[in-house]
Amino acid sequence: MKSLFILNNPTKLDACLNAMSTQDGLLLIEDAVIATHHSGLSCVTYALEEDLIARGLSQLVKQHLVNSNIKIIDYTQFVELTLQYDKTVSWL
């Protein structure tokens, strides 16, 4: 089963990564969008654009993303993303 892990708290990133399996995806939302520079992000990772814009982080994060596999998505793509996985896990 492919799971989309949704993280909104950057301090819980390591615990969340620990619980994921290789085929799972990670979506960073709310405060967790600042975690895009985290070195351990070997899994398929997305960050929510609206949360970046709200925090004025778009430019800064785009620099991080130059050579990384993190994809920035908006709310509509967020909804579509949830359909590509068997279930979502909101890591709280």
Binding site: N18, A19, M20, K87, V89
Partner: peptide, 10 residues
Amino acid sequence: SEHIQQSDFV
């Protein structure tokens, strides 16, 4: 991670 992966709801 296996238990999480196998369950329908987490």
